[in-house]
Amino acid sequence: MSTSFLLICAMCLDAALGEPDWLWSRMRHPAVMIGTVIGWLDKRLNQGAQRRLKGVAVVVLLVFGALLLGRTLALLGPVVEVILCAILLAQKSLVHHVHDVGDGLRASLPEGRAKVAMIVSRDTRDMTEAQVARSAIESAAENLSDGVIAPAFWFLIAGLPGLLIYKTVNTADSMIGYRTEKYREFGWASARLDDALNLIPARLTCVMIVALSGQWAQWSEMVADARRHISPNAGWPEAAMARALNVALAGPRSYDGKVRDLAWVNGDAPREIGAPEVFRACDMLWKVWGLALGLVSVWFGFSHFF
């Protein structure tokens, strides 16, 4: 059975069910299990000399383990593949979390801060309404790329092994891929491999947002914003989302009590935004999902009939 057909089924299953609390309150999510393994390796190997070499060894081990596990689980049949793929996609849960921020802001600023604190790592205690909204929209754009489009892309290209390799590397990057004293060397390999695996999906996400919003005339400005972004990949979907919604994103923000003066994305657009723009971002998430489903369906039809 073709991976494109399995992906269509998985995308629809994820969109319908998301991540039901009744299931994950009774068992551990696969991403949590992957994180447990990475945490164990971090605790035992991220010390002493040769930390970069140890980090490379960790990534090689994780990739090989994910490849072996993916091939083994694929032998259990297409139903297992569809269920696992659906579990490792994050469309419905992403929309749910971002929409919650909009609902929180509509209720009160403190509620909006509490909700956005669940999806971003920056300081949220003193955020203004606009900062909360921008944070939610930036998270929506970035996670659309690495939580939905990238997993779907790698499943389509390499089946369940490709999906598990991507999710494992992406999880490792989120845990140890920081430019801090502790992880600068040990997390170097995971961060660089995650950048490589997201190279195509991030730009594909950008193109899909632009196609849906019709903002082709601003393509050169989007490319410039993306290249100024702190991340080599996240800037692409953020630049496209900013122009699709006609809002300014990024800019200064605080991490661990220290303000970082980061470049604005679409800086000439309105900066004082709120819940309505967050809800519009949620609408765009579903539009991109629909376009992705359509493209995969066309791929399936072409490969099946021709």
Score class of each variant (00 low, 15 high):
A292F: 07
L53A: 14
Q215T: 13
L160I: 02
D126N: 13
I83R: 06
D173T: 10
L293I: 05
C282R: 00
R28F: 12
L160G: 03
I38V: 09
A240D: 07
S139Q: 07
L204M: 11
S174C: 07
I157L: 15
Q218G: 13
V80G: 03
G77V: 13
V120Y: 07
F64E: 03
F279S: 07
S220V: 13
A239T: 10
M127E: 06
F302L: 15
A234H: 10
M1W: 02
V278I: 13
W289D: 03
I149P: 03
T180Y: 07
L109S: 04
L164Q: 01
R28A: 14
S174A: 15
Q131E: 15
A263W: 03
A57T: 04
V288G: 00
P30A: 06
A240C: 09
A130C: 09
A158Q: 02
F186N: 02
W154K: 00
R106A: 15
K54H: 02
S25E: 08
A74Q: 10
W286I: 14
A86I: 09
D14L: 00
A15W: 14
L7R: 01
M175Y: 08
Q218P: 05
F300R: 09
I119P: 02
V116P: 04
R51E: 07
P270I: 13
R243L: 07
V223E: 15
M118A: 14
W299Y: 12
M208Y: 06
A150K: 02
A292W: 08
Q91A: 11
A16Q: 05
P252M: 06
A172C: 01
W299I: 13
A114L: 13
C12L: 15
A292L: 14
E142A: 02
Y255P: 01
P252V: 07
S25I: 04
A250D: 07
F305I: 12
A114H: 12
E129A: 11
M241S: 04
E142C: 03
W24H: 01
H229F: 15
S135C: 02
V101N: 02
R192N: 10
A189T: 00
S297D: 05
S108V: 09
L291F: 05
S190P: 01
A86H: 04
A172T: 01
P270M: 10
E129P: 00
E185D: 15
P30S: 06
F5E: 08
A130P: 00
T36D: 13
D103N: 14
N233A: 10
L156Y: 00
A150E: 04
G267T: 11
Q218F: 09
P30D: 07
S108P: 05
L199V: 12
A242E: 00
D100F: 09
W154D: 01
